[in-house]
Computed example of a mutant assay.
Amino acid sequence: MSEDMSKKLTVIIPFLNEGMEVAHTVASIRQYAADRVEILVINDASNHLYDYEEMLKPYSATYLRNEERLGIAACRDLGVSLIQTPYFLFLDAHMRFYREGWAEQIADYLDEDDRRLLCCQTYALVKDESDEVIPLSGRGVSYGAYISFQDANLLSPKWIFTEDPEPEKELIDIPCVFGAAYAASKRYWIYLRGLEGLIRYGFDETYISLKVWLEGGRCQLIKNIEAGHIYRTRSPYRVCQDELMYNRLWIAALLLPDELEEKVFSICRHQNEPLYQKMLQLLDEHKDLLAELKEHYKQIFTVDFDRVKRLSNIY
């Protein structure tokens, strides 16, 4: 990517089989941020017959195509490694913006403190029968997410639907980012080792949010930056249960205290014993990386896990 020191933020958009929505998302970024941000679009080996590179030419976006699918976690880490700006914003490829100034506001917050993981406010959208994008009716305002530590969905993010906890503030602490519009500094992301260890898809938000809080940073919601997110009835790609189980086991083995780790492993085993055994074998194949990351986090984490857990347990 070209280096332009006047720009502080790169929008990173990994996608798979998103069709025209890729261009619509990039067009929305350019409409409200013009040329004040860089845009990096990563095609994760789409097999739909769209000429994405040609589609994106009017928007001055850097386009990269993976010959083999890496998965969302690895694509995000790849994107961060390639950018020249100090900060980035991850987006899905089916999103919209609605006002100017959002890019500068994100950069200003990260200038103040680059040990933040910032989450934009989610504005839920759907497509109607004529394929027009409209607000999702009946959805209340959410204030980030919390991490479930209570049930069979342990480690899953859950929306926080409540009254505005701090109406006088534009920026508030939240237990977990959610909604597919997250910003951070490249320096901090690399220091935390990003999403390293996850495979394909699942639990990205839980993983990075826990690491930020355990390191002593903060996950925060920017309430006045709305990122429109189109919610769909079906995904353009297949999400496999092995990916979801493996990533949950990985987080448990790497970050959780013994009691919670055992609980996660027990839940996964009871859900699907044959798949669980297969994922245990895969974990064993990656034991050297697991050990390396454990040592890294032992050196940089400063916050007790019970304190981090309490952030979510109040919901």
Rank of each mutant, 00 (worst) to 15 (best):
residue 129 E to A: 13
residue 88 F to G: 06
residue 240 C to I: 07
residue 124 A to L: 08
residue 239 V to C: 02
residue 253 A to G: 08
residue 306 D to C: 07
residue 263 K to M: 15
residue 100 E to G: 03
residue 268 C to N: 08
residue 248 R to V: 08
residue 134 I to P: 03
residue 232 R to E: 07
residue 233 T to C: 13
residue 190 I to M: 09
residue 83 I to M: 15
residue 236 P to S: 01
residue 235 S to W: 13
residue 234 R to T: 14
residue 287 K to W: 10
residue 50 Y to A: 05
residue 303 V to R: 15
residue 234 R to N: 11
residue 22 V to G: 02
residue 115 R to G: 02
residue 259 E to I: 06
residue 191 Y to N: 03
residue 224 N to A: 00
residue 44 D to T: 03
residue 248 R to S: 10
residue 235 S to L: 15
residue 50 Y to S: 05
residue 48 H to Y: 11
residue 272 N to D: 15
residue 272 N to H: 11
residue 264 V to R: 07
residue 130 S to W: 11
residue 207 Y to E: 03
residue 24 H to N: 11
residue 235 S to H: 14
residue 100 E to H: 10
residue 283 L to S: 02
residue 175 P to F: 13
residue 81 S to P: 02
residue 242 D to M: 01
residue 82 L to H: 13
residue 137 S to W: 03
residue 220 Q to I: 10
residue 149 F to V: 00
residue 118 L to M: 14
residue 75 C to W: 12
residue 248 R to H: 09
residue 18 E to D: 10
residue 193 R to Q: 14
residue 74 A to Q: 11
residue 5 M to T: 06
residue 143 Y to K: 01
residue 130 S to V: 09
residue 184 A to S: 14
residue 126 V to L: 08
residue 201 Y to V: 12
residue 272 N to S: 06
residue 126 V to E: 13
residue 76 R to E: 00
residue 84 Q to P: 01
residue 305 F to C: 08
residue 27 A to M: 05
residue 115 R to V: 04
residue 26 V to H: 09
residue 143 Y to I: 03
residue 282 L to N: 14
residue 106 I to D: 00
residue 295 E to C: 08
residue 275 L to K: 10
residue 140 G to N: 07
residue 58 P to S: 05
residue 141 V to I: 12
residue 48 H to G: 04
residue 14 P to Y: 14
residue 178 F to P: 00
residue 294 K to L: 13
residue 226 E to R: 15
residue 49 L to V: 06
residue 96 R to Q: 11
residue 17 N to A: 03
residue 224 N to C: 05
residue 296 H to T: 12
residue 117 L to T: 02
residue 182 Y to I: 12
residue 222 I to N: 08
residue 197 G to W: 08
residue 51 D to R: 11
residue 216 G to L: 09
residue 101 G to E: 03
residue 158 K to G: 06
residue 308 V to F: 10
residue 35 D to N: 14
residue 144 G to I: 09
residue 236 P to Y: 03
residue 274 P to K: 15
residue 100 E to L: 02
residue 291 A to K: 13
residue 152 A to M: 08
residue 57 K to E: 12
residue 282 L to V: 11
residue 90 F to C: 02
residue 33 A to F: 10
residue 299 Q to F: 07
residue 32 Y to S: 06
residue 277 Q to V: 01
residue 298 K to L: 11
residue 47 N to M: 04
residue 18 E to K: 04
residue 34 A to Y: 14
residue 231 Y to C: 04
residue 107 A to C: 15
residue 140 G to E: 10
residue 166 E to M: 08
residue 150 Q to G: 02
residue 53 E to G: 10
residue 288 D to I: 05
residue 204 D to V: 07
residue 260 L to R: 12
residue 10 T to A: 12
residue 194 G to W: 13
